[in-house]
Design a protein around this nucleic acid. Structure first.
Lengths: 210, 210
DNA sequence: TTACTCATGTAAGTAGTTACATGATTCC
DNA sequence: GGAATCATGTAACTACTTACATGAGTAA
């Protein structure tokens, strides 16, 4: 159910077409949620049917048309209610750590590659989020500017501060994961050294005739 | 596609019925993956059809029967291949941080409750994982014991070490998130103080007539 | 005999993905 | 005139959830 809330949050800042919303959910600016066009078009129709947003058909060029969606009062109420409601924590699902926990099946080289990939993945995430924190502080992002235009001046500090805290927390979280990956590489090096085997060897291998 | 790998990994340690696997994916021992019965029964059938596991019908009591599944050589090969393959990172989706980043819609009390819930959530996760690390080190868990029986003695260190690293990393990751929640509570206190408003007030509110 | 666990499923629905289809508009 | 972008969708599929249905085995 987060998709509709993400859509409402975007529309609260600024009216937009489904196409524009899809673009925001697609590029590097989609940092907390992502969705494809095929999900956004029907969801907007549902939101309109429920009276949370309103779609207005506008002309585009001479013959074509587009539908610009705006949030309605009821949509704002749903946003406020969501902000007030406790999050339900999803079931734990960590595909990358599931794999990490069975690396005895991999070659030493494969295990090293795994941890190196994790490290560089989190490095990229941190770089992106750090840049975004900078943009939030200097109020460079168009979406933040639009959001600030809608809200009373007294809320401006809070709007920026909550978002900055989110990305700073995610940065620290990824730092912890980078450190885990660093320790993983050390571990693989130690295990390989202790085994005296080449990097292409594995500690366990499929047993014939199961 | 992680479900089948989680199933293969469990069956590699020890043959089991679908019911037993479902129980393992359900209790507190399901720390990296979780799945319901309705997903496990058909997936095991598929794995059998593909020749990765074999199901043997055994009698249970006088009239009833059960199917015990074991991993086959081809299933072990798939596990080894998976361990060697790079993980594809899913799209970013952080429902709890999406909410955090729009807390200006909530009341001060609601925002505080949100961060307090996050903090206690991660506290519980850390407690569970810490306990599990201890159990892994003392080799108390039946699943680890079964896994160690299957693997050569030379792999025992690695099997334990990879799993311990996973949970220690997740502990540090949750610690970072707890610290974020602590900072969140501080932030709400500061924002409320600066506003001079009661805890039941919100900084932005639905605008009539949208 | 009653309640609980063991055991095996099906059905309907939600959320999201990948791929395709279509056509106008704008920029070079 | 051709390529990229704007714009709106549909269809089929995958993964997972929630709820239901059935019956034997076991322990109080």
């Amino acid at each position: 159910m987060s998709l509709r809330l993400a859509l409402l949050a975007l529309l609260e800042a600024e009216p937009a077409t489904a196409y524009e919303l899809a673009a925001r959910f697609d590029g590097s600016s989609a940092r907390l949620w992502r969705a494809g066009q095929s999900q956004i078009y029907p969801e907007l129709k549902r939101l309109e049917a429920e009276g949370l947003v309103s779609g207005v058909s506008e002309s585009r060029g001479s013959r074509a048309r587009k539908t610009k969606y705006s949030i309605r009062e009821e949509g704002c109420r749903v946003l406020a209610e969501w902000a007030e409601t406790a999050v339900v924590h999803g079931v734990p699902r960590f595909p990358e750590y599931l794999k990490s926990s069975y690396l005895e099946w991999a070659t030493f080289d494969g295990a090293r590659r795994h941890f190196e990939a994790q490290r560089s993945h989190h490095e990229r995430l941190i770089a992106g989020w750090s840049e975004h924190v900078r943009e939030l502080r200097t109020q460079e992002t168009p979406l933040l500017q639009a959001r600030l235009r809608q809200a009373p001046d007294s809320a401006a500090d809070a709007i920026v501060a909550y978002k900055v805290l989110v990305y700073e927390t995610l940065i620290e979280r990824s730092r912890a994961e980078m450190e885990g990956a660093r320790r993983g590489i050390e571990l693989v090096d130690r295990l390989q050294q202790e085994s005296g085997l080449p990097g292409s060897a594995r500690l366990t291998s499929p047993i014939a005739g199961r």
